[in-house]
């Protein structure tokens, strides 16, 4: 994982750091699938260009509220803008990529 966000170059998407937050609910089947699917996609398309935070919604109800999470699993793309929310178990790779702005 690359960490230095300050070096983000808006002109070149190649250099952008993706700040991602994935909310899951414990070890539910959908959550496990979502984590696995997402990590595969990220490794494939955004290697070393993302920060992924995996949050257990049960543990962080306040964060669930502040991030306005309703459906889970949900991946919130905070950066680069625009903000997007990817709901589901990330099994539809095309949609995940579109949501991340990679397609």
């Amino acid at each position: 994982m690359v960490t230095d966000g300050d070096s983000t170059d808006w002109g070149e998407s190649e250099e952008m750091i993706y700040k991602l937050r994935l909310f899951v609910t414990g070890a539910s089947p959908a959550s496990v699938r979502a984590i696995n699917n997402l990590q595969n996609i990220l490794e494939q398309h955004l290697k070393d260009r993302y920060e992924l935070e995996i949050i257990d919604a049960y543990q962080q109800p306040l964060l669930v509220k502040s991030e306005d999470v309703t459906a889970v699993p949900v991946l919130i793309k905070k950066e680069p803008t625009p903000l997007r929310k990817l709901v589901g178990d990330m099994s539809d790779t095309d949609k995940v990529l579109r949501g991340l702005g990679l397609l």
Partner: peptide
């Protein structure tokens, strides 16, 4: 417009918030 549905999901987030509140 912000949401992309990428597969199966549930509304557990709503339940958690409701429960917490």
């Amino acid at each position: 417009s912000e949401i992309e549905e990428t597969g199966e999901y549930d509304l557990e987030g709503l339940f958690i918030r409701l429960n917490y509140a």
